[in-house]
């Protein structure tokens, strides 16, 4: 033994451990800066106990929070061609994809699952902002088409939880084509007489907002979510003015008639159950018996 192993090593690991512990144990609220015990924060579905700020959550948490008892079954999603344009900016698109896949363990920015909501068989699609900003390319578009088909086959409502900066530029025009493609998907659900409910979460902008995110039978937004067509920076650059406080936030959209309700994450399951139950009345066996 020498001073390196006896003295330096423990000191070093102490320093490293010190750095690790707050990250793992504590969460600092992005809005108010309050330190929250991480386990409590997760138990609260990542809503700050102090200021109520809704932090971003992924598909897994959404499925667990929205389906009855969290029980759900994943829907297999179609494979799409990787990097259809052979796109390269400062980095290859294939490398960006590799990074995103390694980090998330997922293939793309969306997941679809089926299960019951208030006892009603339902399909939920959730965009994953942590995967390349939730951006919409071929994979997301195909998943939405698949989700729509699944909902129609099950005679189930389709619930879309949006979170995306917009279209995925690296797929060029093919990402833009997801606007009409997803619109077709949503229209098929509506044509089948089934509810299409959109839950808008932070952030939902660009081509996503200008297609399936704004075509819901009912629009529910989480508090404080950024929702808009053009990004705030683009607008500021165009008009060269500061934007008003709360601009493009959920509450602003409610005030301007673009969403039906702003619902706290803890109330989301209840609101969804109620809406689904009310809209699915004609699909209930009791109703048919009574009508006959």
């Amino acid at each position: 033994m020498n001073w390196l192993t006896d003295y330096v090593k423990p000191r070093l690991s102490k320093v490293i451990r010190k750095r690790e512990s707050p990250d793992n144990l504590w969460h600092k609220c992005k809005a108010c800066g309050q330190m929250i015990f991480h386990r409590d924060f997760v138990a609260a579905q990542k809503v700050c106990a102090n200021c109520g700020h809704h932090d971003r959550v992924g598909p897994k948490e959404r499925f667990e929070a929205l389906f009855d008892e969290g029980i759900h079954q994943k829907v297999d999603l179609p494979t799409v061609k990787d990097d259809p344009l052979k796109f390269r900016d400062t980095k290859r698109y294939t490398d960006r994809m590799k990074d995103a896949r390694n980090k998330s363990g997922d293939t793309d920015a969306i997941q679809v699952a089926k299960g019951k909501i208030g006892g009603v068989e339902s399909v939920i699609a959730v965009q994953n902002f942590f995967f390349m900003g939730g951006s919409m390319g071929m994979a997301v578009g195909e998943a939405i088409v698949r989700a729509a088909e699944e909902a129609i086959a099950l005679k189930a409502p389709l619930i879309m939880v949006t979170a995306a900066g917009g279209a995925r530029m690296q797929e060029g025009i093919l990402s833009l084509m997801q606007m009409p493609r997803t619109t077709v998907a949503v229209d098929m659900v509506k044509e089948a007489g089934l509810p299409y409910i959109v839950i808008l979460t932070d952030p939902t902008t660009g081509g996503v907002t200008a297609s399936y995110a704004m075509l819901g039978d009912v629009h529910i937004a989480e508090p404080g979510a950024l929702i808009g067509f053009a990004g705030p920076r683009v607008i500021e650059q165009t008009i060269r003015e500061k934007l008003p406080d709360g601009f493009q936030r959920s509450e602003y959209l409610l005030e301007h008639g673009m969403v039906d309700m702003v619902v706290h994450r803890h109330e989301l399951r209840g609101a969804l159950r109620r809406v689904i139950s009310l809209l699915m009345e004609k699909h209930r066996p009791v109703f048919h018996q009574a009508a006959q």
């Binding site: 808009g228 067509f229 053009a230 683009v234 008009i239 934007l243 008003p244 493009q248 301007h256």
Partner: peptide
């Protein structure tokens, strides 16, 4: 589409 305050206010998307 035009990126402006009024356009967003009135539901551009």
């Amino acid at each position: 589409a035009y990126p402006g305050i009024g356009a967003e206010e009135r539901g551009q998307s």
